[in-house]
């Protein structure tokens, strides 16, 4: 833990990040976007509601909306924060100097990755007061909020490591950004599409009843961040998911395993490819 706070790259990144105006404006716009959704939702609801109060069901709806907005913001902001971490150093011609220092490749990658993740966590924490509004109206337990936050962080780590990996492998930040956003599209859109296809393929003929377990449908559904959030927010969604896939392996466990693996593999690739492999010389 101590080594984390003495990591030179991390300390340098903190200094650079918090001296840049764009970090503060980033937090401001993030909170602004979140506030517009929450207060807009509350005002619209109050306008349509004759009784003039928000019921616990509506509070859960607000909580769901907030969770999806936050997930979307994370999926949108994380690639932007991490996909330029190494390539921007290369473009600014500071990478070569950094690579000739005594720091290990792991230290450099870890410093870069953790500075972005810590900033993103700051965004999440800064959004907590807005999030906590749902507790005013009931219907949501604090433990549910903790679980959702934990999975947002898991998602953030995975997306962040994909960004750092592409940033190490690809020379230009713009290409790294495209590759990372492309991966996001695959993880959210393409997996959802495959999930629907595999689900349809598993339905038996005319009756439309799921006959056998569908590993593919379960896999594509498990690794989809939106599907996971749906099941975490509404337990009924989890039941229907198990019903259509006919597999009762917990979706959160599958998600955790898959994205932990993605994080580890991407970071390992980034560490391995940051410097040239001198040992390959003939």
């Amino acid at each position: 833990m101590k080594s984390m706070f003495t990591n030179p790259v991390l300390i340098k990144e903190f200094k650079l990040r918090f001296r840049a105006f764009k970090s503060f404006s980033g937090i401001m716009f993030y909170l602004l976007a979140l506030s517009i959704f929450v207060f807009g939702f509350i005002f619209v609801l109050m306008d349509f509601n004759i009784s003039g109060f928000i019921s616990s069901e509506e509070s859960v709806m607000l909580f769901s909306l907030l969770t999806y907005v936050q997930l979307a913001l994370i999926l949108f902001i994380t690639p932007g924060m991490t996909a330029g971490s190494i390539s921007s150093e290369r473009e600014k011609q500071t990478l070569n100097i950094l690579l000739t220092t005594a720091q290990s490749s792991f230290q450099i990658i870890f410093g870069k990755m953790s500075s972005s993740i810590v900033f993103l966590m700051l965004l999440l924490i800064a959004g907590l007061p807005i999030y906590s509004l749902v507790f005013l109206f009931g219907g949501v337990s604090p433990s549910q909020l903790i679980v959702i936050f934990a999975f947002l962080i898991v998602t953030m780590l995975a997306v962040g490591s994909i960004g750092v990996m592409f940033s190490t492998l690809l020379r230009k930040t713009i290409i790294s950004m495209i590759a990372t956003y492309g991966s996001m599209l695959v993880l959210t859109g393409v997996t959802a599409f495959f999930f629907l296809i595999s689900m349809e393929m598993n339905r038996s003929g005319m009756t439309g009843v799921t006959s056998s377990p569908s590993i593919f449908a379960h896999f594509w559904g498990t690794i989809n961040p939106i599907a996971l959030m749906m099941t975490l927010i509404d337990p009924l969604m989890l039941d229907s998911f198990y019903e259509v896939t006919n597999i009762h392996f917990p979706i959160w466990a599958g998600y955790l395993i898959f994205y932990s693996l993605v994080t580890i593999v991407c970071l390992l690739i980034a560490v391995k490819r940051l410097r040239v492999n001198m040992k390959k010389v003939k």
Partner: peptide, 24 residues
């Protein structure tokens, strides 16, 4: 090592720049 073309971290002060590399 001092490369032929190099960049510096503009948002750091001269002593912080050296401090960063010292800690590296």
């Amino acid at each position: 090592y001092m490369p032929d073309f190099f960049g510096v971290y503009d948002q750091l002060k001269a002593d912080e720049y050296l401090d960063f590399f010292g800690s590296s």
